[in-house]
């Protein structure tokens, strides 16, 4: 009997060794994939994951469309998911291979950009708002006026991230419009507000986490996860949720039509929808993940963090940016060019 067991164990060991040849190529945002998550995945499945970074949705889209990239999975934002589907770059998922699909939190299941989650599974979600050093400015921080009608204390000390879609839409919502609007009256107002505010900005740059932490900047238009990381280093930094409306994003994993390692890709997607693993993703980049039950595994400092758990009174102002029409995109680019000329 003992011998049989040993033989079985040996058999199991060799099969897992055989599986160890599996590889997976993940194309994801930079500084977004925790090494401990990949180590755990490799230990459990024997599949070795190679991560390649990108810095914008447009870069990812252009590279994948060009072909010959060798990637299996990509992690586009909400408003790019329909583009990947429409262009036939990502395929419909085989639910039989994703038993953990049921773990997706109900509010993230029937989303406008992918009803029923047939083409994408959640990676992380967050929002863009105002990071403010409350030692410098003590007024209300839950408003886009922080960067569009800059308070005197923050003049020359506030940064704006160079994200065209987010920044223009924050301004559009500030003047009372809808995101991706084609209403030229609204766009004109948004442009004027931006142009008038720009002289008070110190820069339009990334890297807010470090620069808020070391007091180079006193405020920034910023992502909530970055705000939290800045607060952990500098406890006077707080995150404001603009009441006029702020964009919520979710980055979701999609299976590419020309993926070479399809089985491994399914194993990975299923793996990250396990609550414990989803919590590992969050613990690394400090964003929420959209998997029900992952809260229990979250690091203590994230369970109550006001940047991660959106306070009830600010939830209503959050808006998912739709996929803007080419016309709306042209308007935004024109305003952006004018702003940065």
């Amino acid at each position: 009997m003992k011998r049989t067991l040993t033989a079985l164990a040996f058999l199991a060991a060799t099969t897992s060794l055989a599986q160890a040849e599996g590889v997976l190529n993940l194309y994801n945002w930079g500084n977004y994939t925790g090494p401990d998550l990949l180590a755990k995945f490799e230990a459990e499945t024997g599949i070795k994951v190679t991560v390649t970074d990108y810095d914008s949705n447009d870069t990812a889209l252009a590279k994948i469309e060009a072909g010959g990239h060798g990637f299996d999975l990509v992690v586009p934002s909400t408003n790019y998911v329909p583009i990947f589907v429409q262009k036939g770059l990502a395929v419909e998922l085989d639910m039989a291979k994703l038993p953990n699909h049921a773990n997706i939190a109900p509010e993230w299941m029937d989303v406008a950009w992918d009803p029923g989650r047939t083409h994408s599974v959640p990676w992380q979600w967050g929002s863009i708002g105002m990071s403010v050093n409350t030692a410098v400015y003590t007024g209300d921080i839950n408003t886009s006026a922080i960067f569009l009608d800059v308070p005197d204390e923050l003049k020359g000390k506030i940064n704006v991230v160079p994200e065209m879609t987010d920044v223009v839409n924050l301004a559009v919502m500030y003047v009372g419009g809808e995101p991706c609007t084609e209403d030229t009256e609204v766009l004109k107002k948004a442009r004027d507000v931006l142009l008038a505010a720009k002289p008070h900005w110190i820069s339009m740059d990334y890297g807010a986490t470090e620069k808020l932490a070391n007091n180079d900047w006193a405020a920034s238009v910023n992502w909530n996860g970055s705000s939290m990381r800045a607060r952990l280093a500098n406890d006077t930094v707080a995150h404001g949720y603009p009441k006029e409306g702020y964009p919520i994003f979710m980055d979701s994993v999609m299976l590419l039509a020309d993926a070479q390692n399809v089985e491994e890709a399914y194993t990975f997607m299923n793996f990250i929808m396990e609550p414990e693993n989803a919590a590992m993703i969050s613990a690394f980049a400090r964003y929420n993940n959209g998997i029900a039950g992952s809260e229990a595994f979250m690091p203590e400092d994230m369970k109550t963090a006001p940047e991660v758990v959106t306070p009830e009174e600010h939830q209503a102002a959050g808006v998912f940016l739709p996929t803007c029409s080419p016309t709306a995109q042209q308007y935004m680019t024109a305003i952006w060019t004018e702003l940065l000329k």
């Binding site: 110190i202 820069s203 740059d205 060019t337």
Partner: peptide
Amino acid sequence: GGKNMMIGNFIELQFGQ
């Protein structure tokens, strides 16, 4: 600080956002 574009940044804008 990215507040003012140069030709290089402007070209990148056209291929990106």
